[in-house]
């Protein structure tokens, strides 16, 4: 029997973070992408640029600024403190950081997806007596599955691999914020190469498996549609 010399908690935390980030970001990103695709003005360009911002800043720097924003010294942190929420060094703080950091990875592909759906799809569905919601869920979204999937996979994979921002805002606390990427780094720093290899391997296999499954589902659906 192979004995695992490592604690599996970081892997679980990583998966938990990636799943919750992806789900929440899908819920946030979908309406955002929709509005952006409909909007035609200077404001749109500005918002689009703002959404891209998290990619520009190095993630450790981004983490530092979020840490400043969440700290009890700042007005935001102070406000949260009075409601009894403390974000730094907690899973919730890490989740919020991850949501901000992954925003472009979710919104941009979906926005392109919306933009690529011809206006006629909407119009025809309307002439057939369908409401806006129904058209969205049954005509538009099914026709942009690939864009949705791209957003989901990018966000998921990116969250799993996230490092700098999580290290800064999470504080690498075992069992709370020590996700797999941090565990690998810590083991490298401690020269526990064997443990680092094991973590990396498990992380790679699980992530590839999940992404493969997502792609597989997509493939099956495409075949289904062709038939």
């Amino acid at each position: 029997m192979i004995e695992l010399m490592i604690d599996l908690m970081p892997i679980w935390l990583s998966l938990k973070l990636a799943f919750s980030t992806t789900l929440l970001l899908l819920l946030i990103g979908l309406p955002m992408a929709y509005l952006l695709s409909k909007w035609q003005s200077l404001g749109k360009t500005l918002v689009e640029s703002l959404i891209t911002l998290p990619i520009i800043l190095p993630s450790t720097v981004m983490g530092f600024y979020l840490l400043l924003a969440f700290s009890p010294e700042s007005w935001l942190g102070n406000l949260l403190q009075t409601v009894g929420i403390s974000l730094p060094f907690s899973f919730a703080g890490m989740l919020i950081a991850s949501l901000i950091y992954n925003l472009p990875f979710m919104v941009q592909p979906i926005q392109r997806g919306f933009e690529e759906i011809p206006k006629q799809y909407w119009q025809i569905a309307y002439t057939l007596g369908k409401s806006k919601t129904e058209t969205l869920f049954r005509v538009v979204l099914p026709n942009m599955k690939r864009a949705l999937l791209t957003g989901v996979i990018l966000t998921f994979a990116h969250t799993i691999g996230e490092f700098g921002i999580i290290l800064m805002i999470g504080g690498n606390i075992p069992g709370v914020t020590k996700v797999a990427s941090l565990a690998i780094y810590s083991d490298l720093e401690a020269m526990n190469y064997q443990a680092a290899h094991t973590y990396s391997l498990i992380l790679l296999i699980t992530s590839v498996l999940i992404i493969f499954l997502l792609n597989l589902i997509n493939q099956l659906k495409v075949q289904h549609a062709v038939r």
Binding site: L68, F70, S71, E73, P88, L167, N172
Partner: peptide
């Protein structure tokens, strides 16, 4: 629980309520 980091980073984090 032992948290390993650089002295500078730990200090920044402590200044922000770690």
């Amino acid at each position: 629980d032992v948290v390993v980091s650089s002295s500078g980073r730990i200090t920044t984090q402590l200044l922000n309520g770690a």
